[in-house]
Design a protein around this nucleic acid. Structure first.
Lengths: 340, 340
DNA sequence: CTGAAAGCGCTTACAG
DNA sequence: CTGAAAGCGCTTACAG
């Protein structure tokens, strides 16, 4: 394992000059710089990042914490984060919280803190106040994606507004019998998306002078099978079936579309369905949805965090509460149509 | 940021004793150990991993390289790796190669090498020989998941055998007109799965004395929409349609099932469909498939790698070519049936 | 069982 | 522009 000393010896300069040259600092003559690069190249020199970190306090690494990775939203956000960070030459220390609370405690107390990350990016993970404090006391900047975080910077969409927009789209098409499939209690724990999207739906109904109907409401687990069964329940009775359904995620919308078809309904002729996400497959399902571009959200959050590194933050200002609203857009495809 | 000195001072011992106690080494009296833990707790001491790494040469970190993360197989493998590694107190340095070759070069030359990882786990990434050499020269152990890697240890299923098994299942049900949808050239670059699975299919046909029929063969991109269109093509002409289709992934099988239904066929009464993966949704689609448990594969590969850390490997034996075949099983659900 | 001290491989004021 | 040397925060023979 060749070290900086050997490079210095071969280049005929001091280790200080090698360091300056390789890190692109000023005050290095062109000839010295050239000799250093040649020597490093010839020796196959790879700097030790731990020595760099120990000397500078910088780790060039961002901790990324997700609740799961084997779900569409999270994997796409991670993809966006990964690209943004790698492009800037930064590494990712990856933690998936899947599993029990022990696992979570281990990540926060053991791995993440020890790992000497420059900052932390959480995806739809609600930090407990003691977790936030611990991280702050170690001077780590934090940015959350997927909803507001108490006591830290975060970025996400206006879930309530999104629910309202989706519902208003259905209203504008003349629908008055509008159902909703949102997330259930088990999906509610960490993030409030299900509740907020439902709130937006209720507001839109109220503004239109319509009442909330319990039999047009169902909770599912954000999966296609879950929503399939929920939609069958809602659409099953032909006397009381709604003519449109808002689903709080595209995957649930796929399930609802399938359920409608299996019940003999035509989408959108009999039933309009609107989703939320703009999932990879939503084009295939011809699904009207709300585009929230998770990859871009991930990249934007990563950039926010990295920009903080460049600033000198005082102790008090390290983590301030600040929500950046991510714009959404209605993406109209063929699963919604005017009520017949 | 409280360091080991402060803990030592507070506990009334030397830093050496603090280090021994906290790292669970022997030769520390119970009283000393207790004092150290109390002092560390009270001060909220978090050891510096860069100092640890510099002193020991161990990073407690594994580099994980995937081609993408926003695809089912990879995200599930990553989930398995993540759980296995975190349980052992190891960190993940995560790299997604999505994108161009520049990105790949940057990951291999810059990030991964510098990052001081103890070893590298690659998922369905075929290492170029110069990449492998560079990593080996830096004494990193390597384990690959998802197919054999030339010059390194790897773990994966027997893709050819899997293709054969799937086809034999269809044959055993009396089918003689069996189509296949496998991966196209664009999915072939890194891994040979599509080709191997197809080879298994052809072998099984041959063994049964059946000829390969070009119009029952199609290539898609491992997505549901891709396979949907491919399946329509294969099944479209009722005079020449096969009675069964083997799809090289479950997501493609979902597309094929959908296509069959949209053409008015019943699955499995008219058309049997078998997939491969055991995707989260394959139960919902009632899909007969080959279970390859990617999460377990990821965990097993992680454990293989970690076990290497504990061994003292000579220079020559650091990375030896060694393929560990992962067992598969036929998982029979309702999408396949005896030919009518 | 315990401690003083060297050493891991860098960076960076400081002095020239 | 350049170099000698201190320092980053740990671990670990070595000696006691």
């Amino acid at each position: 394992m060749v070290g900086i000393e050997e490079v210095a010896a071969r280049a005929g300069v001091s280790t200080a000059t090698v360091s300056r040259a390789l890190n692109d600092k000023s005050h290095v003559s062109k000839t010295a710089r050239k000799k250093v690069f040649e020597a490093a190249e010839e020796l196959g020199y790879v700097p030790s990042s731990s020595a760099y970190t120990l000397a500078t306090g910088k780790t060039r690494t961002v901790g990324v914490v997700v609740p799961f990775v084997d779900r569409w939203f999270f994997s796409v956000v991670l993809q966006g984060i990964s690209t943004a960070l790698n492009d800037r030459g930064l590494n990712i220390a990856f933690y998936s919280l899947k599993g029990d609370l022990d696992q979570r405690a281990r990540v926060f107390n053991d791995l993440l803190l020890r790992k000497n990350v420059d900052g932390v990016l959480t995806v739809a993970v609600k930090l407990a106040s003691h977790e936030l404090e611990k991280l702050s006391s170690l001077r780590k900047s934090i940015v959350g994606v997927g909803g507001p975080i108490t006591g830290a910077r975060s970025l996400g969409i206006d879930d309530e507004g999104a629910g309202r927009l989706a519902t208003q789209h259905l209203l504008s098409l003349g629908h008055t019998k509008i159902g909703i499939i949102t997330g259930g209690p088990s999906t509610e724990l960490e993030f409030h998306q299900p509740y907020l999207r439902q709130t937006g739906y209720r507001e839109a109904l109220m503004d239109a002078g319509l009442d909330f109907q319990k039999n047009w409401f169902a909770e599912a687990d954000f999966t296609m099978p879950g929503a399939y069964h929920a939609a069958k329940q809602i659409l099953g009775d032909p006397r009381s079936a709604p003519t449109a359904i808002f689903c709080a995620s595209d995957e649930m919308a796929f399930g609802a579309i399938q359920a409608a078809k299996d019940l003999g309904y035509s989408v959108p002729d009999d039933i309009s369905v609107i989703g939320m996400d703009n999932h990879d497959l939503s084009g295939f399902y011809n699904l009207t949805t709300i585009n929230q571009k998770p990859a871009d959200q991930g990249a934007a959050a990563a950039n926010m965090l990295v920009n903080l590194f460049d600033q000198d933050l005082e102790d008090k200002k390290l983590n301030i509460q600040e929500f950046h609203e991510w714009p959404i857009e209605l993406l109209i495809r063929g699963s919604t149509a005017r009520r017949r």
